[in-house]
Nucleic acid binder design. Structure first.
Lengths: 211, 211, 211, 211
DNA sequence: AATGAATGAGGCTTCATTCAT
DNA sequence: TATGAATGAAGCCTCATTCAT
């Protein structure tokens, strides 16, 4: 067994945990299985982490970070509607691209809710907050209040979560493609009716750096 | 310790299991906890059920039945749009009314997917099929093909599942009320753009009793 | 369920127990299985017997009685050698005829030894004693001391037990027939060398009725 | 608590299992008792073996190996009759020397028959095959066909098994010594009548070491 | 840094037995 | 007489965790 830095080992365990959680569920993700998946000794898990709980906390952070990435890699010049749709699409596409992540994320949400109550909310809040702030940026100088961006963020979350549940249940890529289109059209039509079909195609002028 | 009929005990165990699953998750739903919740002895579980698996199968049936009820208690005279929105609203309202059910349902979906593969899909399929057939009934003599009713069913599922995830995570009733309104408006605007804003308010003439 | 006399019920349980012991072993003979085999309710076992132990004691008596029968139904006129061989043959034949009995008998011997020590010996002693006394009867006025009849009894037991082990292991009737012949020839040749090849075909004169 | 290699621990468990099986029977040989007998923790059993079944398979192998040893450590120069009698005597002597082994062997035969059907036969077959091949070796250039060696092997098995049943039932060493003599004389006289009293004492010439 | 050995707690299940009707 | 309902003890097995090297 090659000597690997502790930091690398921890990363390996996090990724291994995602896979194992996806395959066996959060409670089927035993330390033994995670160690095996990571190609490490069982005792190594507790050498790198004080407890399984600690490892899962890291996995949790990893998932949160992923969501953060998915909601910040947007075109700062794009209008609100386009930005909203892109965030939804990117998220759904990443779910499809990485089913393990999708499953693990939902499992971790449940886990966090059960184990930590408020912490479960925190993931949601952080992810939603990312969406919200991105939306506010994209709103630019248009007259859109926070309540509205909140609603949009909620809707994106609805659709993304709903899509995830269906996708991980069926695991059918072709079906998923169709569902993504439906979700997109749902969001589009709702945005139109919510924000009006007007000027959102108007090229935007001002643009400050985001974040 | 009153002597209760085995049939009644089985019902008790099913309800107890829903509660315990909601609180501790599907894997935290140990026979001991379920027995305790049902006010019964641990061995009693195995007097009523051959195995924990068998009990869970009953819980599963219970959830499927609930979804069936939620998608069939509609006004057969009502137009498609109204029926669709009612199914979504009823489902969400039942989730809010019975958070345990909401959590347990999501947990069971994951459980069924992991343990039984196709069976997990079956729950979804059955629930969706209920929605679809109700929609087809409601379509009446309007010219709406099956692909469209399928899309509508999918969208209802999206929004219901997405709502559920948010509701069980936050557990905030006021927030849930807002989310329900958003989900309803999302569905409404999408239906309008999908089906057209036309005659669906026209009183429907023909309509024999279904089933 | 017809009302059956308690005595009959107990007999049913004994026979059921023999079958179940033969199939599942002494420890696999659970009260539930015995009740099922007897077509009775589980609680009925404890209605007829204070405990499983008590039932088994009855089964034990049943087996002992069977061995007694097998060693007393002989021709009182026959010479010693013939009587000895007949007892062995009858026993082996009954084993073959009733494999359940054969298995159950061996299981019960082990059970009695483990549970009761001296009681296990008792079965053996009773069976051997039956053989011995029958042999002494058959010895008639020939000059054969008790040590010799003991030896003969032992040898019969050897061969019968050894045959039983092989028979219940293979369960092959054709093989069993061959083994029976071998056992018989072994006994015959040993008796010849032990008692001498002399007058044992001489018709016997005296003969008082035995019991 | 000394740290012992897993291989050693497995050996310990096998020996412990033999003792426990001898004392409590095959079904009374619980993992807890075996662990206790081996001076180990209960969970240790499952650290060394995947299941109790696996442990028992090892015990089974151990017994088979013992029988193999008992039927192969013979004088390759000795004549058939002597070899046959030695195998029987050695087996009986080992039974007396190690009563636990004797009991465990009989219990395992029953266990294997119940649990595995053909596997139970396998033990017998292997042991018998050892006897047979040793006899064939010992037959040398004498004109003895396979049917005859088979018969002899059967007779040895008869007598050994029959002796075992008596010995483990009574547990009386003095009695056992007498029984061994009887068994030996039975075998001797039968061999004489079966093979003829002729040349088997003639020194054998040819005979290279086998294997 | 790494790992084989070890363990207490708790999981599901089965059993003989008793209770109440 | 007969039987469904109920239970405590004990079975096998798995888990996260720790110890010793």
């Amino acid at each position: 067994m090659p000597r690997i830095s502790a930091a690398q080992r921890r990363q390996d365990f996090v990724h291994a945990a995602v896979e194992v959680i996806a395959t066996h569920g959060i409670d089927g993700a035993t330390t033994r299985r995670i160690a095996e998946q990571a190609g490490a000794n069982l005792a190594m898990v507790h050498y790198c982490y004080d407890s399984k709980e600690d490892l899962f906390a890291d996995v949790y952070e990893f998932v949160v970070g992923k969501f953060r990435d998915l909601t910040t890699t947007v075109d700062p010049q794009a209008p609100l509607e386009q930005t909203a749709r892109k965030m939804l699409r990117d998220t759904m596409e990443y779910y499809v691209e990485s089913p393990s992540f999708a499953v693990a994320a939902l499992e971790l949400i449940n886990w966090a809710r059960r184990q930590h109550g408020s912490r479960g909310i925190a993931l949601f809040d952080q992810a939603l907050e990312g969406v919200r702030s991105t939306l506010r940026e994209a709103a630019g100088d248009r007259d859109i209040d926070d309540a509205t961006t909140d609603e949009i963020a909620s809707t994106i979350a609805f659709l993304a979560d709903g899509f995830a549940v269906g996708w991980i249940t069926y695991g059918d890529r072709d079906l998923a493609e169709k569902q993504m289109k439906i979700a997109d059209s749902v969001l589009e039509s709702w945005l139109t009716s919510r924000l009006g079909a007007t000027n959102h195609r108007t090229p935007r002028r001002r643009r400050a750096a985001s974040r």
